[in-house]
């Protein structure tokens, strides 16, 4: 079933410090949306605002199929089908990998969800009995993505999934993420500084700069405009 996550006129702040200004975003199930921007551009804040992180004060609206998420607690947003993979991974280190996955499984999710997730993120299959604190960075990243998928979400928010990972792991991760919209019929939002990772994966790209959305379009258009890339993304991100 088609479903749409809509962000409308979203402004966000940490206390008195403004972090986002009037952001509009639309994510449909089955599609991948990329967010590019330098450090501090507001990518993480945008994802945290969508999942109703209590640290952030938000104005504007976030809705799924017209149902506002604005006044809901974070756990209710999660139960409505929004899964979040934070940039620092944050797996539960005192739990086993199997427990990390099971904890996110919502009521009513099909019993074969674990098998489907393990097929989509195969690296996790061999880790199920390991404790969270025993995992490497790449393994932790795979587990956090698998954990997010266990809730059978309609929308998956990935914050800097390639951060700190080796090129080989990034390549495997990219292949896994690319299949997710189709396999699980979900919308994916990837916030990244890795230009190539996003432009290879996304159906559409948005560029953020100091809390504002300064450009939106297809990845092909962005790749074909070096001036645009130079202007809004630092050299290392190309």
């Amino acid at each position: 079933m088609t479903s749409t996550l809509t962000v409308t006129g979203l402004s966000a702040s940490y206390g008195l410090a403004s972090a986002l200004k009037s952001i509009d975003l639309r994510v449909e199930k089955g599609r991948c949306v990329g967010l590019l921007g330098r450090n501090g551009a507001g990518k993480t804040t945008l994802l945290k605002s969508i999942v109703a992180d209590p640290e952030i004060t938000v104005r504007g609206d976030v809705a799924i199929d017209g149902r506002s998420l604005r006044k809901l607690a974070t756990y209710k947003v999660a139960r409505l089908g929004v899964a979040w993979v934070p940039d620092t991974r944050r797996i539960f280190t005192r739990l086993t990998v199997a427990e990390n996955l099971d904890i996110a499984r919502r009521r009513g999710v099909a019993s074969d969800q674990l098998e489907r997730v393990l097929e989509a993120v195969p690296l996790v299959r061999g880790l199920l009995k390991r404790a969270g604190y025993e995992l490497s960075g790449g393994e932790q990243q795979a587990v956090t993505i698998a954990r997010a998928l266990m809730s059978a979400p309609d929308f998956l928010l990935l914050d800097e999934p390639t951060e700190g990972l080796s090129p080989l792991i990034v390549e495997q991760l990219q292949a896994s993420i690319a299949r997710l919209p189709e396999i699980f019929d979900l919308g994916v939002v990837v916030a990244e500084q890795n230009f190539r990772f996003v432009t290879d994966l996304a159906d559409e790209v948005h560029v953020l700069e100091t809390g504002e959305m300064v450009w939106s379009g297809t990845p092909e258009l962005l790749v074909s405009d070096p001036d645009l890339v130079d202007r809004h993304l630092s050299v290392g991100e190309k």
């Binding site: 974070t74 756990y75 979040w84 944050r90 539960f92 996110a104």
Partner: peptide, 13 residues
């Protein structure tokens, strides 16, 4: 899980 990371606990529902 919550004892370790309350916000992430909320985020997994």
């Amino acid at each position: 899980a919550i004892a370790q990371d309350q916000v992430m606990g909320e985020a997994v529902g």
